[in-house]
C-alpha cells in the first residue's frame, strides 16, 4: 500500500501508530490489509477498539477521506464506519487469486479514475470477505449509489449481491476486500489498480 501511495502521489505516506490518539494533517487515511492484532477475536474486531480509532472516527466525521482495504474494510465495518459485516468466505477457505471487478459508482474521489461500468482486475487475499448486511441496508446502499465495486462474473466469496466495496453516504469512506494496491506495476501482476490511486492523487492535488 505504501508503494502504491508513493507511486501515485510522489510522496511517502506517514505511518500512524495504533496507540496514537491524534492524527497529523492528512488528505487521506488508509487502513491497509494485514491481520491486525492477529485477527484473533474476529477480523478487525480488536483493531476497531484500538486507541487510534477515536481519532479515525473524528477524521471521518469531519469529512476526511478514509480507504480501508481487506482487513481495513473489516475494521471499518467493525467500527461502524461502514454498514454490514464480512463473514468467512462461502467456501470456508482463504482465497488468494485474481478477480474481476466492475465499477458501480464512478463519482467519488476513489473511483473517478474509471468510467461507471468499467471492469478491472484486482487481487483477492482473504479468508473473511463474504459481505453481508440486512436486505434493507443492501437496498439503501444500492438505492443511494453507495456500492462502489461488484465482483464481475464469479462471486468468489459469497458476498451479498456480489458486493466487493462500499462507500459511506458522503462517499468519502471506501471499504473494499480486493487489493488494488497489488496491481500498480505491470511487472507484478498488472496496473489495473492504478486508477484508484491516480484518482485520489488528482482529487487532493486540485
Amino acid at each position: 500500500m505504501a508503494i502504491a501511495l508513493r507511486l501515485a502521489s510522489g510522496r511517502a505516506p506517514v505511518s500512524v501508530w495504533h496507540r496514537d490518539t491524534s492524527l497529523p494533517p492528512l488528505d487521506l487515511l488508509v487502513l491497509p490489509g494485514g491481520f491486525s492484532y492477529g485477527d484473533y477475536l474476529r477480523c478487525g474486531a480488536i483493531a476497531a477498539h484500538s486507541p487510534v480509532m477515536g481519532a479515525v472516527r473524528e477524521f471521518a466525521a469531519g469529512g476526511g477521506h478514509v480507504l480501508g482495504v481487506c482487513n481495513g474494510f473489516q475494521i471499518l465495518t467493525e467500527a461502524g464506519l461502514l454498514p454490514g459485516a464480512l463473514l468467512r468466505n462461502a467456501g470456508l477457505r482463504f482465497l488468494s487469486q485474481d478477480c474481476q471487478l466492475s465499477v458501480e459508482q464512478a463519482e467519488s474521489a476513489f473511483t473517478r479514475g474509471w468510467q461507471e461500468g468499467a471492469r478491472f482486475a484486482a487481487t483477492l487475499a482473504h479468508g473473511d470477505g463474504n459481505y453481508v448486511a440486512e436486505a434493507s441496508v443492501l437496498d439503501r446502499l444500492e438505492g443511494e449509489g453507495l456500492v462502489a465495486f461488484r465482483y464481475a462474473g464469479d462471486n468468489p466469496n459469497g458476498s451479498a449481491r456480489g458486493i466487493a466495496g462500499i462507500l459511506s453516504p458522503n462517499r468519502r469512506v471506501l471499504g473494499l476486500m480486493p487489493h488494488p494496491e497489488n496491481k500498480v506495476d505491470p511487472l507484478t501482476g498488472g496496473a489495473d489498480g492504478l486508477p484508484l490511486f491516480a484518482g485520489l492523487a488528482q482529487s487532493f492535488a486540485s
Binding site: 502504491a4 494485514g34 482463504f94 488468494s96 487469486q97 494496491e181 497489488n182 506495476d185 501482476g189
Partner: peptide
Amino acid sequence: VWNQYDSTVGGQTVRR
C-alpha cells in the same frame, strides 16, 4: 493448495 496462500502480499511477486 496455492490459492489458500497469500502469494502477493508485499507487492513484489513477479511470478506467482
